[in-house]
Design a protein around this nucleic acid. Structure first.
Lengths: 195, 195
DNA sequence: GTCTATAGACCGATAGAC
DNA sequence: GTCTATCGGTCTATAGAC
């Protein structure tokens, strides 16, 4: 963490503005938030906003890109471990990314494909899901994962569980990121039933 | 099933109009859908719409009520079985309700509390979640469910998995309701890992 | 004639563009 | 700061099946 000296007039930088804007989008919805309303909420003028981003959609695109980069990074990382352990690695990594980039991932998960930018994001998400499904399938072939549940159904259910974190997880809460990742892995791999 | 003789001018009845309207709300968002746009999409006039419902919000309220009635019915039904089996009963019932009332439940799960109606629905949803968490806790006390995961966290994760069905399940798909309920129970209770 | 669903013209309020 | 389009909603009259 190099704490670069901040120069120039103080205020939002591109990064801080992005985070703040995404939070507002999550509160009120992307479409429902006009640029004027966004600027007002952030306490600056539209002109200042457009100094950092050339359009409202560029804010969206950047945030969705960040979220997707994080998730795809998890896949890259998972390729380093043995095929049988890959699913656990992906689940754990996904929980970590969700928590670290909660606002951006929240925005990503609410995208419904209303524009080209949103559709491209959905395409990347679909590709991610397919990669995960392939990992599940490989684990089934290896015998590490039960094969009486279809790989793509299992993938959707697992990521339904993981993604639901954005609905309720708050950084201030009692549950830490590691504990949460552990709980997700426990349920996903071993289930809740005692034996 | 008394198939009452249909009298009067043909067209939408309240039920059919509700289903159609909820589907449109899910496509475009409740707030973003104007009454005029809704009426146009359904092929009738605003006035005809207001013959069946006294306000746009009453449509929302009715749909959310239907979804919540269905979920609460699952809880009532679950009270009939032994405490140790109750969680399985609730999960299975919830999957069934989600599938049978997919449009209404989808709408419910997207509510963010932007009005009194939405907040009341969220309150009922929270109460439902708490009831389920109590069932999980009771199962833990009985030793039927592992107690190294907090009951309310487990509840949220399980229902994250179940609720995610609205994002991808389509009645036309290959997966039937019963098969899906079985898959959910398998993962939730036994996990994906082979033993 | 009765019952249900429907249409068109219109209202006051307001949010957003200019 | 003004102006216009659109919002949710109303009123009255009517169309069509039994």
């Amino acid at each position: 963490m190099t704490d670069a000296v901040k120069r120039g007039r103080p205020g939002y930088d591109r990064r801080g503005l992005l985070d703040a804007a995404v939070t507002v989008f999550n509160e009120s919805g992307y479409d429902a938030t006009s640029v004027a309303a966004l600027a007002a909420r952030l306490g600056l003028s539209k002109a200042a906003l457009y100094h950092h981003f050339s359009s409202k959609e560029e804010i969206l695109e950047t945030a969705l890109g960040d979220a997707l980069d994080g998730l795809e990074g998890v896949l890259r990382q998972a390729r380093a471990v043995a095929a049988g352990d890959r699913l656990a690695e992906v689940l754990q990594g996904a929980v970590r990314v969700l928590i670290e980039q909660l606002p951006a991932v929240t925005l990503l998960l609410r995208v419904r494909g209303n524009s080209d930018v949103e559709r491209r994001a959905l395409d990347r998400r679909r590709a991610f899901d397919q990669d995960v499904a392939a990992i599940v399938q490989a684990a089934q072939a290896e015998g590490a994962v039960r094969d009486d549940v279809d790989a793509s159904v299992a993938t959707r259910l697992l990521f339904g569980m993981v993604n639901s974190l954005v609905e309720w997880y708050r950084p201030t809460g009692p549950e830490g990121a590691e504990a949460l990742a552990r709980d997700v892995l426990t349920i996903a791999l071993d289930g809740l039933r005692t034996r």
